[in-house]
């Protein structure tokens, strides 16, 4: 049995959901245009991931294999709806800027992927650590991508102007900027791993 820390650590670098597993790229590309959105999405997804991994691993022996996917989806959708309601009630500004991508966490393949690949086969403790590691890995990836894109595309970091007179490249906050940033970061990460 692997150590608890290894289970947590793997999601952050070696099996990073964004840079290594290439899961959940749609929200990654869409909401990483500024840091606040990236961070908000990262926290929301981590909460859903943690909740669904804990519940799914604790009921894994009760659920027949044939209907496991619908059960997982119901559990995940429940957590996503909770997040959506909480965001609307307590962080309406963030809710408005994340928009449709909050309900779409339901179909974020990181979450169903971890439920299927990990939580359905492991104990609650391991699944919770796996969720935390993967969630933080996802959040860090979003943070890195969104920092680069916000700085180059809007000339700001977290909304604050960093360099006076810097002319931002609008392409960086648009879809091509997202794809280029992600591609280069994946390449960089692969190079790091290969050394």
């Amino acid at each position: 049995m692997k150590s608890l820390f290894a289970e947590f650590k793997k999601g952050i670098h070696i099996e990073n959901p964004t840079f290594a597993l290439l899961l959940g790229l749609c929200p990654t590309l869409a909401v990483s245009n500024n840091i606040r959105n990236g961070l908000g999405m990262g926290i929301a997804a981590t909460f859903v991931l943690l909740g669904s991994n804990i519940i799914i691993s604790s009921i894994r022996k009760l659920i027949p294999t044939k209907i496991r996917i619908p059960c997982y989806i119901v559990v995940i959708a429940t957590f996503v709806t909770i997040v959506e309601l909480l965001l609307k009630a307590y962080f309406p500004v963030l809710d408005r800027s994340l928009g449709i991508f909050v309900p779409l966490i339901v179909v974020n393949c990181i979450i169903l992927g971890r439920a299927e690949a990990f939580a359905s086969k492991n104990t609650v403790t391991y699944s919770a650590l796996d969720a935390l590691g993967m969630g933080i890995g996802f959040m860090l990836a979003l943070l890195i991508i969104s920092s680069i894109r916000e700085f180059l595309g809007s000339g700001t970091l977290l909304g604050f102007q960093i360099i006076q007179g810097f002319q931002p490249a609008i392409i960086m906050v648009l879809a091509p900027g997202a794809l280029m940033t992600l591609g280069l970061l994946i390449g960089f990460n692969n190079w790091l791993k290969r050394r």
Binding site: I59, L62, I63, P64, I67, P70, C71, V74, V75, A77, T78, T81, I82, L85, L86
Partner: peptide
């Protein structure tokens, strides 16, 4: 039975949060 149980629990939780 399992699916129904899962859905009922989910509905209760969501009702509470709502």
């Amino acid at each position: 039975m399992v699916l129904t149980a899962v859905c009922v629990v989910a509905a209760l939780v969501l009702g509470g949060v709502n």
